[in-house]
Computed example of a mutant assay.
Amino acid sequence: MSAKSAILALVVTTLIPGVVYAGKNKDGREAGKVIAGWVEKVTILDIRDEPIKAKLDSGANTSSIHATNVESFKRDGDEWVRFTFVDKDGDTKKMERPIVRGVKIKDLDGGADRRPVIELDMCFDGRVHKTQFNLSDRSGFNYRILLGRRFLGGVAVIDPDETYLTKDHCRDAIEEKEDNDDKDD
């Protein structure tokens, strides 16, 4: 490929929303980063099958999900947490998950808040990702989910002028995950 062709290909892929600008993984799935808007719809498979609006935030390191009634406890010697996810419509989902780590979040006053971090399966742009989320009361924010750099790296490049550039459904990915879960049983 000539240098001129390579530059043209790069320009074209950066101008087309939602385009993946890499090849395929060994398993035939798309690899690389997708161009995404600063707000996208994602599906948290452990919570519900319907997409939820999420803010993409390169200023945040760890992704965050809205949680109320957060309570840590021990299960078989491991640290766990139970919490309630409440969406914008008021629908709730009570959950229990192992704590994978803790994170210290600095506030504007110079203080810090220690939060538990859990893993959830999330569908973003038609692909399922195991993603770490810190549990936070996001009731004062417009978006119940915030996707930070730990998730975005290797997955998406943010176009701050756009919203909803990625696929907002995960039917194929959900069916594939269910098939894989059935094989594990």
Rank of each mutant, 00 (worst) to 15 (best):
S2Y: 01
A3L: 14
K4R: 12
I7S: 08
L8M: 06
A9G: 05
A9N: 10
A9F: 01
L10E: 09
V11F: 01
V12L: 11
T13F: 02
T13C: 12
I16D: 08
I16R: 12
P17D: 04
P17E: 03
V19M: 10
V19K: 06
V19I: 07
A22Q: 07
A22N: 10
G23E: 09
K24D: 09
K24A: 13
N25L: 10
K26A: 13
G28Y: 00
E30S: 13
V34N: 01
V39I: 05
D46P: 05
D46K: 06
I47Y: 02
R48K: 15
R48P: 11
R48L: 11
D49L: 11
E50T: 14
E50H: 13
P51L: 10
K53P: 08
L56F: 05
D57R: 05
S58C: 05
S58Q: 02
G59T: 04
A60P: 04
N61W: 14
T62H: 02
T62E: 07
T62A: 09
S63E: 08
S64R: 13
I65T: 10
I65S: 08
H66N: 15
H66K: 14
N69D: 13
S72E: 14
F73K: 13
K74M: 11
K74C: 09
K74Q: 15
K74P: 13
K74W: 06
R75L: 10
D76M: 12
E79D: 11
E79F: 07
W80E: 14
W80Y: 15
F83M: 12
T84P: 03
F85W: 00
G90K: 01
T92G: 06
T92N: 05
K93T: 06
K93R: 09
M95E: 06
R97L: 14
P98M: 07
P98C: 08
I99M: 07
I99E: 04
V100E: 11
R101Q: 10
K104F: 07
K104S: 14
I105D: 08
D109R: 13
G111V: 03
G111N: 06
A112W: 04
D113C: 05
D113L: 05
R114Q: 10
R114V: 12
V117S: 02
I118E: 04
E119A: 13
E119I: 12
E119M: 14
D121P: 04
D125R: 07
D125N: 15
G126W: 00
R127H: 15
Q132K: 13
F133T: 08
F133Q: 04
N134Q: 08
L135C: 06
L135T: 10
F141M: 10
Y143F: 07
Y143C: 09
R144H: 03
R144T: 03
G148L: 04
G148R: 03
R149K: 10
R150S: 06
F151R: 03
L152Y: 00
L152P: 01
G154H: 00
G154T: 00
V155M: 02
V157W: 00
D159W: 00
Y164Q: 05
L165Q: 01
H169E: 05
H169T: 14
A173K: 03
E176K: 15
E178S: 08
D179T: 11
D184C: 13
D185Q: 14
